[in-house]
Design a protein around this nucleic acid. Sequence first.
DNA 1: CTCGATAGTGATTGGTCACTAACTTGGTTC
DNA 2: GAACCAAGTTAGTGACCAATCACTATCGAG
Lengths: 195, 195
Amino acid sequence: MRMSAEERRESVVRAAVIEFARNGYRGTSTEAIARRVGVSQPYLFRLFPGKQAIFTAAAERCIEETWRVFDEASAGLTGEAAAEAMSEAYLGLVEDGEQLMMQMQLYVSVFASRMGGEDGEDGIGETARQLWEELFERVRLRIGGDAAEATEFFAYGMLINTLVALGYPQDHRIWGGFGVQSRAARGAAGQGRAE
Amino acid sequence: MRMSAEERRESVVRAAVIEFARNGYRGTSTEAIARRVGVSQPYLFRLFPGKQAIFTAAAERCIEETWRVFDEASAGLTGEAAAEAMSEAYLGLVEDGEQLMMQMQLYVSVFASRMGGEDGEDGIGETARQLWEELFERVRLRIGGDAAEATEFFAYGMLINTLVALGYPQDHRIWGGFGVQSRAARGAAGQGRAE
DNA sequence: CTCGATAGTGATTGGTCACTAACTTGGTTC
DNA sequence: GAACCAAGTTAGTGACCAATCACTATCGAG
């Protein structure tokens, strides 16, 4: 089906999120992305300057999407209620694993690009930090401005990432009282840890 | 320099942790590991049945090492004091990034192996979960048996992983009052969050 | 010294992958 | 209906990589 280059780019990004999430940067062939999109592999290089650019676009998309979900879930709320709503939404977002693993893949790619890893020498680290800080700031404001609470929110978020990556079902004892239904929000809700 | 197969395997594992940490499973060539060890690439396949086995050995080593550091740092302590000591030790362990990134690479590999990713079809997920649970259990006992506190400990640990991976120096404001010297311990210390 | 075992290498191979060049298809406009 | 342009394809290239095989070097024991 013939469509505009812009529309194609959009479907490439969507396909790339899935493929990169599952197999990582090196583990994903441009062939696989192209097949998922339904176009020939060389055509990708007309829509994007290279594989790295596709990865970056997918990573950006993924973090933007995370904020979109947070924003939607916590619209009109503030403080703990907002944090709770966002935590709950995050568990939903992350359930299928694709969004989550794209995040993780981004983190390891950023590290690799710093450690003289051979690929990703473009400014992916800079981009990632910018996106992360923006997300952090937005969440902080939404839950009421307290940095420590925002930090706690993200800490539990990162634990969720890890447990999901390892493949623990949400009723496994390792989730230790959080996870499963809305109780998941408890830990991340930042229930007034005074300091 | 000629050495016993067992000694060689040991140096291969050490080299593999570095290479896999920096470049991931797919991004690391057996050639690169061999070069770092100082042996020919084919010889690796005499010491290990395949690339995957080297990766698994490196991952196991890395988690065992984490416990070793925790254990040493918190020897003779219990409760919050133990948690604080372990947190502090973790920041030190993780500072250079290699241990940490090997962990992250393990997580993404486990996920990939679950998602029909083409490599890692051996039981790496099972192995990883076992190692993780063992570590969790040991930490839980050391800090006094409370699962929620252990969960919080690990949550902040995972946040540390992410921030280090993204390349934030420990005095960056995103660390929000934790990180930097022993104050790092504060967040992870599980300071009696009643419920 | 020599013989057996263990440590280690060089050459190769079948396969994969990012990326390029040159070409074709389909829609729009005058 | 032809001229034009953007969308899309087929064919190909050089580089790299895990794994195998057949071989050599070095050690220790009798």
